[in-house]
Design a protein around this nucleic acid. Structure first.
Lengths: 197, 197
DNA sequence: ATGTTTCCATACGCTACCGTACGGAAAGTG
DNA sequence: CACTTTCCGTACGGTAGCGTATGGAAACAT
């Protein structure tokens, strides 16, 4: 936990508060005067630390970028002999509970990226890094390079997609289903090539 | 195409316009006065046909629901001998181009559902229907019931997830990769059971 | 102690929307 | 032709949020 926010704020305090509302309400929910109330100050403070609202959003995006890249390489740095467990871990981290803050922010940033080119660029970079790291893990497991790329794309697309779904009405034993999906993504055997036309 | 909108509007015209901006800007972008300008009328018209903004949103949601259910059963009604092709089709419909209106609305509605319980309920119902239809297709292909459910969840999670990603920076030949993923989802062989602990 | 810098409060104008009240035209009805 | 209903324009009040201007308090410096 944080020591209760000091009577002296700085940029990072505002950015942190912005992340909270980003998770709950998306980019559109990040409003200067709302954050001010939440931080028990007024706009006067905000416009001291930031040029305008866009300046804050840029800070949020930049903070997200460096934090993501850092976490990605930390989670996916190959540890000899544990590569497969690491892949499982990547899947579980996001598909664990649908309401943890990490996945909420992830979805909010992607929604953001759909309408803001700057955000889109950063998400694209983060995704490229993620896919590269996952691919290396697959390769370390003995999967050929091309197939490793394919499975990495499937893995992350699944992870992000399942975080937007609510399957409980369809599948009772979701945990078992997810475990089976993990197996399909990481360990299934390629089918025979389809007959050429 | 539509015959140029008559000088007489009705609910469906407003709802249709709302869908356009829903795709482009999300639920938050649906504003009464903006739609009015786009339809070359004023708010006076809107508040004749709708009680308030929420009334319009309810209409949009309801329209989406019936349209989705209709399309789902149409696309996935088993046609003997073509079940596998139908599964491929389901995947391709969404993962084809990232900027087609269908996928934009799909993502917007899901974003909507994350903050509005009514929307969440409808999305949940649509997903259950989708998963059920896909499962039946797998079953028709000879896949056991449980595995059919698993692959259905994987299929749709992948479809929605990949629509939020931009892999071009990572994978050059995206078409080939997607084709391989289709194979993995629909035809891969289950791995051997992992050794118990 | 006095001046300077840092950080925040207050007050203001401005825009974008929402929803309402009311008036008027056009189309249907007798 | 009256008369009503349908549909839309206009005008208004109200809220939320952005950004600016300005003053003041506290910390810091000399």
């Amino acid at each position: 936990m944080q020591k209760t926010p000091r009577p002296q704020l700085d940029r990072s305090a505002w950015i942190q508060a912005a992340f909270d509302t980003l998770a709950d309400e998306g980019v559109g929910g990040i409003r200067v005067e709302i954050l001010a109330r939440r931080l028990h100050v007024t706009k006067g403070s905000f416009y001291w630390h930031f040029k305008d609202r866009q300046d804050l959003l840029d800070g949020v995006l930049e903070t997200w970028k460096v934090g993501r890249i850092r976490d990605i390489v930390k989670q996916t740095r190959p540890e000899a002999g544990h590569e497969e467990a690491q892949l499982f871990h990547v899947i579980d981290v996001y598909s664990a509970s649908r309401n943890n803050k990490g996945i909420l922010i992830e979805l909010a940033v992607r929604e953001w990226a759909r309408r803001d080119p700057a955000a889109a660029l950063i998400v694209e970079e983060a995704d490229a890094e993620r896919l590269r790291c996952a691919r290396d893990l697959f390769v370390a497991c003995g999967v050929p390079l091309g197939e490793a790329s394919t499975r990495s794309v499937l893995l992350y697309a699944y992870v992000f997609g399942v975080s937007m779904m609510n399957c409980e009405k369809f599948e009772g034993d979701l945990a078992a289903t997810k475990a089976d999906i993990n197996e399909l993504i990481t360990r299934s055997r390629h089918p025979v090539k389809p007959p050429p036309a």
